[in-house]
Amino acid sequence: MASLREIKTRINSTKKTSQITKAMEMTSAAKWNRAVVNAKAFVPYMNKIQEVTASIAIGSGGVNHPMLTHRPVKKTGYIVMTSDSGLAGAFNSNVLRRVSQTIKERHKSNDEFAIIAIGRVARDFFAKREMNVILETIGIPAQPNFADIQDITRATVGMFADGTFDELYIYYSHYLSAISQEVLEKKLLPLSDLTASDKLISYTFEPSAEEILEVLLPQYAESLIYGALLDSKASEHAARMTAMRNATDNAKELINHYTLVFNRARQAAITQEITEIVGGAAALE
């Protein structure tokens, strides 16, 4: 059995760790709250832009736009969203596993796909495996603004427009609740899931439907990416909060166990001392 001092050191270090995980749990909880609020604030914009885009794209009939038309796929783009830091349970590894499996199934060589990595974990993962990362961004704040990621969304949509890749998928962790998130794969471009809502309104277009789509579609695609980011942030903080809560609980359990061991060892030492004294006294008689 370990010595008393060793057990004591272990109890102390576990206590310190549990303080850290507890603090991390609380900061994540605060961030998670705000992330959920942000994601909610985005919903009206998303619904509206979807509605308008759908009614224009469908309502105006024979409008052709490169972002709406399927073309033969030579190269596929993948946007992968992870966090910058770890300690979020299986949050990052779930996304990365899903992406690497899909890529392995769909592609034979590195030239058939390109990766846009958002978050340090994704970037390091793909860079280490020498997979084709064409764009990366790290250090996105916990409460991102649209302006924070506009550079990357614009560049990504631009790459589709100039033919760097012919279709674009996004992988991110979708927030279901504080304790469950699921990895989602969504096809972003070409835009395909435009379904008109209740009733179509026949708009007048000023100047013309084509010119409006020219501006609206990239904005719509950018909004989809931003929406996924907000979703992913909410998942990240929820996942980290849960992971840290588990860590704190485990630490508490360990501390209880070690305290028991410590007390037992102390008692054993005392008993042994008494036995020795009694034995010594008996020998003198």
Partner: peptide, 10 residues
Amino acid sequence: VSIVTPDGPV
């Protein structure tokens, strides 16, 4: 009238 942005309604 409603003015909405990605960061919320204004």
